[in-house]
Design a binder for these strands. Structure first.
Lengths: 219, 219
DNA sequence: CGACCTGTTGATTCTGCTCAATCAACGTGG
DNA sequence: CCACGTTGATTGAGCAGAATCAACAGGTCG
């Protein structure tokens, strides 16, 4: 049984910047018009314990979805960028909280009639599930270098990048997403740099020099 | 920001044995009658790469949902027991594969009309997502003992157990679910046993002696 | 009985965490 | 303009926890 690699659970990259992936577009058609609200860096979009409300569409910027252990350790279950929908949780209270990373525009998706948002909610929810399951494999069965490589490949695909990836989030966020410490994240990047797989033009930019090597490392 | 503990994303335990949780029941009402098929231990229910088909309901027995890394390491993303529905994946090819663990009866859920299965699919899919996100926290931010304790608490809740938990799956499966090796699973159980939190009446039974201690360890 | 499979236990290795120092970038106030 | 504090990132040293390697025990089935 061979592994099928390079799944793509995101909206097609070409649509990402505008948020006009077909399933998302159809979702928008079922919503009441709603203004885009702006969130400042680290501002909370919804908190843990709040009652679950509508879905959210990222118009621009980046968002992190988090959860805490009893002793205060954080796990980021997903990052969301322009064109992506988040806020999927069972009815009741939010078990995750969502925060803005850098300054983002978020549109609320409120159904325009009692019939609801239509079948595309399920489509997008299943994508979210598939991404979470990919991430289970990463957290459970990869070492630090593999995690880092997989993370960069994922960002590369989602950003429609030619060669330079933007790291909007900081090392601590990456660490809490990959199940590492920020020191280990720093070291993993260093290893990739010294292997000439990437370059680091600035603290929050990664230039991919050897994509196939990166993909190979990503397992 | 405090953590909300003891979520329960499963069907209510009282319904588990019969598979008659409200959302599942309503799902059944929208399906064409379909016989229960029996799977033998380790038999494949659907394979990676197969095209995604219907949903599945466990009538009795246990099922594991798996995925492989490129180098053949396995991550089990979920176990499913009587009364639970599985098979949620985006349209296209299965990225996970499902196997029977011990001998199980599985009912296919085929929609009885073109209108589909109704809104309850989303409800159950979101439960599955929430469980996956819980598991992300476990894999990313817990140590071996915490993982083991959390696993036992989860089984305890889902089995409607009074004190004795049935471990239908073997050590290797538990390890691949918790992101550990089977040796570490064995040692983690030993630690809990020596702390008088559990007893091991037999290889595949765990008697819970101190539930609150177990819950505390589970973070 | 022997072969095999699963699980337990022990010894050793190694990856990634912890603790700590240093550095660069940035903003503020004198 | 520079001194200072702050914050995020990098780097180093030492340690701990889990993986690996290996031996062995118990059970099952031919």
């Amino acid at each position: 049984m061979l592994t099928q690699l390079n799944h793509n659970h995101s909206a097609p990259a070409a649509f990402a910047a505008t948020g006009r992936d077909p399933a998302v577009q159809s979702l928008l058609a079922h919503t009441r018009p709603c203004a885009v609200s702006f969130y400042r860096p680290n501002e909370v979009i919804y908190a843990q314990g709040e009652s679950v409300g509508p879905l959210y569409l990222v118009e621009f910027g980046a968002v992190r979805i988090c959860r805490l252990t009893a002793d205060g350790r954080r796990q980021i279950s997903a990052f969301h960028f322009a064109g992506e929908v988040f806020g999927f949780e069972p009815a009741g209270e939010h078990e995750n909280y969502a925060e803005c990373i850098d300054g983002a525009g978020i549109r609320l998706l409120r159904p325009n009639a009692e019939e609801g948002l239509g079948g595309n909610v399920l489509t997008i929810a299943l994508r979210t599930l598939a991404r979470a399951q990919d991430h289970l494999l990463l957290l459970g069965r990869m070492n630090a270098s593999q995690k880092m490589a997989a993370f960069l490949v994922d960002l590369f695909d989602r950003q429609d990048a030619v060669s330079v990836i933007d790291l909007t989030m900081q090392r601590n966020d990456i660490a809490d997403y990959l199940g590492l410490t920020f020191e280990t994240v720093s070291r993993a990047l260093k290893v990739l740099k010294e292997a000439s797989v990437i370059r680091l033009p600035s603290v929050n930019q990664v230039e991919v020099l050897n994509l196939s090597a990166l993909q190979r490392l990503a397992g």
